[in-house]
Simulated assay, not measured.
Amino acid sequence: MEIRLRILSDAMLRLEGGHKESNCAATKIPIRKMFERLAVLAAVPPDAGGDALLTTPAGGGLRLAEVQPLRVRLVLEGPAGVLHVPVHYNEVIQGLIYRYLDPDLAGHIHDGGYPEGPRRFKLFTFSRLLGRWERAGDRLRFRGPVSLVVASPVPGFVASLVSRFLSVGTLQVADQPTRLLAVETEAVPQPSGPVRVKLLSPLTVYTTLQTNQGRYTYYFSPFEEGFAAQVLRNLERKLHALTGNSQPLGGAFRPVRVSDRNLHIVRYKGTVIKGWTGIYELDVPPEAFRLAYLAGLGSKNSQGFGCIALWERSGPGD
């Protein structure tokens, strides 16, 4: 079996010319031509690990000396082209990530994370499962390829996942043998000024209130005052936890195309969480945008919330 590895950006790779014994002929190519051949689909043996040979349609070869992707799109397919998952599957995907992550790194992130005051951030996020689906009782049935975006600014996090995924080829998702069809690395955009983003998984921000009946979790709506401030303050705390930068973030965040249909009610380990998808405008410094793109916006990112992507207009009316 072969797995397709699509390299979408040279910014996260260090490559060296060379060759390696393989079923495909490999030849040395000049350094200046390396970057011309990155955006190709390459056949990678499942046991190649981090020292894989990338082969191009022209028959040339590159040794992949080091891969440090920060964000990837995994393309999966269930048995006979059908993948069944619970309606509330966030815990399933989170478990998949921790199971295949390097054990030491997984322990560090799960048990400690990155502290900021009393809070500890895991600093990774993932999207919903993206594909054609239908509901069947308390489960969802995905037909054909299914995509999952995983991102983290933590050094080695995504690279560890990619290496392990490529080594096994077939993953266990909700107790089903699931083929890994492709791994696509995604470059981190570098916008200047306001940019519109879409939520690939619901965005949630909340506060905990003390009432006569006890503690109560209040989830903010994008239509309320305080929603944007909560999102930006959360991003500021993550930046402080990761870099030590304690300067006020500033910036702006507002809904652009959001309606009641974008409200999602998610159950995670017995807890009800409210989150919102839709299109929003985000205006923050480049360092903060990079962190939002890799760690997510809002709270509970490691539980499958707040994963964003740039929004592209699809027509004149958009």
Rank of each mutant, 00 (worst) to 15 (best):
P191L: 06
L200V: 10
I109N: 01
P45C: 07
T277Y: 03
L181V: 06
L101P: 06
S201R: 02
I97Y: 10
Y280V: 06
K198A: 13
G193L: 10
P145H: 03
S163N: 05
A136K: 14
L232F: 03
I31F: 00
P286W: 13
Y206S: 14
P194F: 15
L53N: 02
I7S: 03
K269V: 12
M12F: 15
P115H: 12
L15F: 13
R141Q: 09
K300F: 08
G251C: 02
R237N: 10
D318W: 14
L203D: 03
L232V: 09
P189I: 01
Q172T: 09
F227T: 02
E91N: 05
T204P: 09
E312P: 05
R120Y: 12
V158A: 03
S221L: 11
F121D: 01
S22L: 12
V85N: 04
K300S: 12
P57T: 10
P222N: 11
P115Y: 13
G298T: 13
E287H: 15
E2L: 09
V44K: 00
P30H: 05
G244A: 05
I109P: 02
G113C: 09
P115N: 13
R73A: 11
D47Q: 09
L180R: 10
E16D: 06
L8V: 03
L161D: 04
A106M: 10
L129G: 11
R179M: 03
I97V: 15
D51T: 12
V173F: 00
L242D: 01
Y218R: 13
F227E: 12
L235E: 08
V231I: 13
E36T: 10
S9Q: 07
V158M: 02
K28E: 01
F165Y: 09
L38Q: 03
Y280C: 04
R132D: 11
R237I: 00
G137I: 06
T55D: 05
R135D: 03
G226W: 02
A80P: 05
G275C: 09
R99I: 05
L242Q: 05
L53K: 13
I3N: 08
N234R: 08
A292N: 09
V87D: 01
L291M: 11
A252G: 08
Q303L: 15
P103V: 04
Q303T: 05
G95W: 11
G298F: 15
E184M: 07
S302L: 10
Y114I: 07
P45I: 00
F305V: 14
L297S: 04
D102Y: 04
Q213R: 12
V284L: 12
V146R: 00
D260K: 11
Y89I: 04
G169S: 02
E287M: 04
D318M: 03
L199D: 02
